[in-house]
Design a protein around this nucleic acid. Structure first.
Length: 183
DNA sequence: AGCCAGATATGCT
DNA sequence: GCATATCTGGCTT
């Protein structure tokens, strides 16, 4: 448990999404191998947001969105892609932050082997790409950020510039500037 | 820059 | 039963 991280997550998805840019996000594999890097892009989703999976209430698919802050909500979409969110806010509020991009820094060889033929700049530059590179699938749905399989590292202190833009790939509530990108 | 196929779990009718 | 999805990669223009 990391109380600094947890206080960010408890502040809600809209606050946590920009605050998470610059954090390190790593997966620790069964052989202790570490893959991941620095979060570059996030999006916020709340329950009163028509673009959110939690908008229409709790279902089997989005169940973990309604659990406690500090776990992953991993979902499958378009028949082949996994995407990972960090659950935020007070338990039961159905909020989460989608991790959209990271800078590949650790375990480059392993990530490239999972995404054959892709350049480093194309390894983790999308929510489904980074899940493929890190090997995140359904098994990580509900996974704690404070356990032995995920590691979150605070920003090292460098200045981080963030811009807010409309979210990608959604149709409803697209006016909200809830995508946060490191520039 | 734009169009489209891919492949399936999920949720609604 | 059926339309859709917090997307990506490859092909066309």
């Amino acid at each position: 448990m990391n109380s600094h991280l947890q206080s960010i997550l408890l502040s809600g998805a809209v606050n946590a999404a920009p605050a998470l840019v610059g954090w390190g996000f790593y997966k620790i594999g069964p052989g202790r191998e570490v893959v991941g890097g620095t979060i570059l892009e996030t999006e916020a989703y709340t329950q009163d947001d028509a673009a959110s999976h939690s908008f229409s209430g709790r279902t089997a698919r989005n169940d973990y969105m309604f659990h406690e802050a500090g776990i992953l909500y991993v979902y499958f979409t378009y028949g082949m892609h996994w995407c990972a969110n960090i659950v935020t806010g007070t338990t039961g509020t159905g909020e989460a932050v989608l991790i959209r991009a990271i800078r590949p820094e650790h375990g480059l060889a392993l990530m490239r082997s999972r995404r054959p033929g892709k350049s480093v700049s194309n390894l983790c530059s999308g929510p489904a790409k980074l899940c493929q590179a890190l090997g995140i699938t359904k098994e990580y749905n509900g996974e704690s950020l404070y356990g032995s399989r995920i590691l979150m590292k605070p920003p090292a202190g460098e200045v981080i510039n963030i811009v807010a833009t409309p979210r990608i790939g959604i149709k409803k509530d697209s006016h909200r500037l809830w995508r946060f990108v490191s520039v």
